[in-house]
Simulated scan of single mutants.
Amino acid sequence: MNGFSDEERKRIREELIESGRDLFVRYGLERTRIKDITDEVGIGTSTFYQFFDSKELLYAEVLYRELTRFETDIEEEVMGIDDPHEQVRTVLQRTFEEVESNPIVHNLIIEDEIRALQTQLSDDDREYISEKLSVGMTDIYNTWVNHESFKYDDPEMVNELFRSLVFMTHRKDLARPDGETSYDQIRDTLIDVVVDGLFDD
């Protein structure tokens, strides 16, 4: 990266990530062009490739930061709760809130942008992204599966269960038109059912 100091490289990389996030939110992964990102940062398109090999790898970095921030926040909150039932409830509530309010996470899961990452990259890049995005709340899940009243002993199964549940955010049409049953009521009832179903007591 001749021509840039270490400080300049760090600044440009951060600006690419920030600009990329804003554009991914507005236009999605497929409709965002590298030129759109570099124009925001004030660098040439060719310079982009000194920092990221592809738009998809920049997107993966944005996702990694979003997921890491969310999981750090939720781990701190849950570790302050003694009752495992309430821990599970908190994780589910916060996960739904994140998918409902964070357009990057919503687009990844609900709008299936993960498929674009899987289909447009080399095998090596797919493996890299898979490893980078495999952050998870392993410590929390391990605490639950080791609890005497928790019904299941596989933390990965718990993780996949939670990931599957968030697809409900795509079905806000489940609410009744007469307003007697809202999406929020359905979501909260689902959380109650899942929490009760994960424990023997």
Rank of each mutant, 00 (worst) to 15 (best):
L161T: 13
N107F: 02
Y27N: 15
Y141K: 12
M79T: 06
T68G: 04
I186F: 14
S164D: 07
I129L: 00
T90C: 09
L121N: 14
I104Q: 04
G28V: 09
E148R: 09
K172R: 15
E127K: 15
E180A: 13
E180F: 03
I17M: 03
D53P: 13
L57G: 05
Y152E: 12
Q93L: 10
L92F: 01
L29Y: 03
V193S: 04
L23I: 11
Q120A: 10
E127A: 15
L16D: 08
E100K: 06
D188S: 14
T72W: 00
H170D: 14
R187E: 06
Q120F: 06
Y27R: 15
E100C: 04
E127S: 15
I81E: 12
I34C: 01
I140N: 07
H106L: 07
H106N: 11
D82Y: 08
L117I: 15
Y27S: 15
D192G: 11
D188G: 10
V158C: 11
W144I: 04
D196I: 04
E30W: 11
L165K: 06
N142W: 00
S122E: 11
I37S: 13
T72G: 02
L121E: 08
V193P: 00
V78W: 02
I140R: 05
R89I: 01
I12D: 06
P177Q: 04
F4V: 03
L198M: 12
P84A: 05
Y64S: 09
R9G: 08
D154L: 11
E40W: 01
F199D: 01
K10Y: 09
I110L: 02
E30M: 09
Q185F: 11
L92S: 00
N146F: 02
S101D: 06
E77G: 00
N142L: 03
S164R: 04
D139N: 10
K172E: 15
V25A: 06
Y49R: 00
E127F: 13
F51C: 03
S134H: 11
R163S: 09
R65K: 05
G179L: 07
L121D: 04
V135S: 07
H147R: 02
L67R: 14
N146R: 08
D184Y: 13
R94C: 05
L190H: 07
I12S: 06
E30K: 15
A175L: 08
R33T: 13
I186A: 10
H85K: 08
E76C: 02
V166P: 04
M137I: 10
R13H: 14
T169F: 11
F70D: 00
Y64W: 07
F4C: 01
L23H: 11
L165M: 13
T38W: 07
D192C: 10
E127Y: 08
A116T: 06
G20W: 08
I104L: 01
Q50M: 08
M157K: 06
E180L: 06
F51S: 01
N2D: 02
L92T: 02
